[in-house]
Amino acid sequence: MYRQDDPEVNLEQILERISNFFKRFGLGGGGSGIVYGLLVVIVVGVIVWLGTGFYTVAPAEVAALRRFGIFEDTAPSGLHWWWPNPIGNRSVVDVQQRRRLEIGIRGATPFLEESQMITGDENIVDVQLLVQYEIKDIEKFLFRSVDPAGQTIKDASESALRQVVGARGIDDVLTIEKEAVQVDTKELLQQLMDTYETGIRIAEVKLLNVNPPAEVQDAFDDVVRAREDKERIINLADAYEEDILPRARGDAQRILQEAEGFRAQRVNDATGQAGRFTSILEEYRKSPEVTRQRLYLEAMEDVLPGITKYIVDSANGGGLLQLLNLNNGQTPLGPAAPSVQSGPAAPNQ
């Protein structure tokens, strides 16, 4: 039966017992060479067998150790010893390497059967996905699920991706919801990995390509062009706005400023003339009669010199006739004609 002691001690004890056993039958020392030969073979065999228990673990790796099938321990990188077969087992796994899984593409070759899927609005979309994962729990990874890093994660990734894409419309998948598809797929995939006890941690889920199928690519491109056309037209309309409105506002300012200018001019005129009148009036009131005369005469002085004048004597009667004659005549300074006219009336001219 298996014992817990150190193997060497164990062996020595066993050898001693065997030796004693033989000695009891009087075979000690001088006995048969065959027996000792056999014993030596056994001992050497055991030592060689135990020697196979030495192993090394590379820096990025971890070894999972089993004794009689039971998971006992893990060993980090370095030189170790563990029970060799059939007592012990060891499985070495690279736990630091970030592993990659491609869905819908293999290297550069598209894999349509995997990549084409139905969206929530019953369109077909071509999705290529990269899953990166690490082993976080070596015990689960090795002992809880069949082929965790193979078919398990591949099937689960496909299923998760298709469920997530199937919950969205094609336009969302192609544009604004890309990020959400990644996040949701990762979450769902991690959930599946945990349910399946794979010991795998999903590090990243990344959409490599999301495209409409090649058969309808042109139609999708045309939509993109249409959107660009729309943008362009709206830009032109904006440009029109930017051209027209500032001019209109400028015009408005001009109109208003002109009006303000008019107001200032009008008020200034009025104020000036009113002031002038007030000043003259003040002086006039001091000696109204003389001033009035003076003003009148000065005005007459200014007005009369250049103009044609007829002075008619009001004492004579029919000045009007003569006046009419004079109008037709050429000589401006004719004899005085009697007239009843008074004031500065300019008859027909």
Binding site: A299, G306, K309, V312, S314, A315, S339, Q349
Partner: peptide, 17 residues
């Protein structure tokens, strides 16, 4: 008067003005 009585205006003035 100053404004509208220009050089080619003709007026008739009564002598007893």
């Amino acid at each position: 008067y100053r404004i509208f009585m220009t050089d080619n205006t003709t007026i008739v003035l009564p002598a007893d003005s």
